[in-house]
């Protein structure tokens, strides 16, 4: 048997045992599960760190060593990185605000720009659809689609109303508040429909993954026994 195949076979066996170890959690927490859990956290953290090193830090530091004049910004980043490391050391603690401010500032600015151009404006634009049946070709179908569009708009507004909260209103605005409150109640029902869809989706996702793990155990793990002639 070639070496690669042996490696693969060993891998399948270990994967099978680890799968069983994690599945044992259904019966309750146990040392075997905890071992698998710690193994996983270690591998995941080590893998992420290696990738961060290989793809982000190493190429830049190499460039800095090879061509310091061109790669001067990397030196600056590295300096900021050192300040981040020095966060616990008093004399430099104040300066650690610079890298943190850089992280915050870029994150907030990009989040602001992204949410404005990528979510708020397009989603608002998509909410305001024509409500006239003629816009949908008229006839029974036109009416049906126009009704759908109106219902979509009503439901969206209702969900937004569900976010609003106010105390018992008095005076001239009482009727308005009551209207908003009623819309909010409808909004919560609409959200429950969305949650129902999400719950069903989550159940399907997790169940599919469970199926695939069991298929692995049956076909590949036990199947490898047949390969060994057992």
């Amino acid at each position: 048997m070639p070496l690669a195949n042996i490696g693969n076979l060993i891998g399948i066996w270990i994967a099978g045992l680890l799968t069983l170890a994690v599945l044992s959690y259904i019966l309750g927490d146990n040392p075997v599960y905890r071992l698998a859990q710690h193994l996983f956290v270690g591998i995941a953290a080590g893998y992420a760190a290696a990738l961060a090193w290989n793809h982000v830090l190493a190429p830049r530091l190499t460039r800095l060593v090879q061509a310091p004049a061109e790669a001067w910004p990397v030196a600056l980043f590295a300096l900021l990185g050192l300040l981040l490391l020095a966060r616990g050391w008093r004399p430099l603690a104040a300066l650690s605000g610079i890298p943190l401010g850089l992280l915050m500032g870029t994150g907030a600015a990009l989040a602001l720009g992204g949410i404005l151009t990528g979510t708020l404006v397009p989603q608002l634009a998509a909410s305001f659809v024509p409500l006239a049946p003629a816009a949908y070709g008229g006839g029974v179908m036109g009416w049906a689609l126009a009704l759908d569009a109106a219902f979509l708009l009503l439901c969206t507004l209702a969900v937004l109303a569900a976010f609003q909260y106010h105390r018992a209103a008095r005076g001239s605005l009482r009727l308005w508040y009551r209207g908003v409150q009623a819309m909010g109640r409808l909004g919560r029902l609409v959200m429950m429909v969305a949650f129902g869809a999400i719950l069903a989706g989550a159940a399907l996702s997790f169940f599919t993954i469970l199926q695939s793990r069991l298929a692995f155990l049956v076909y590949e793990w036990l199947g490898s026994l047949a390969e060994l002639g057992l």
């Binding site: 979510t119 708020l120 989603q123 608002l124 998509a126 909410s127 219902f151 979509l152 009503l154 439901c155 969206t156 507004l157 209702a158 969900v159 937004l160 569900a162 976010f163 909004g187 609409v190 959200m191 429909v193 969305a194 949650f195």
Partner: peptide, 8 residues
Amino acid sequence: AGVRGILL
């Protein structure tokens, strides 16, 4: 409508 309202 539900998810869009939440997104907004």
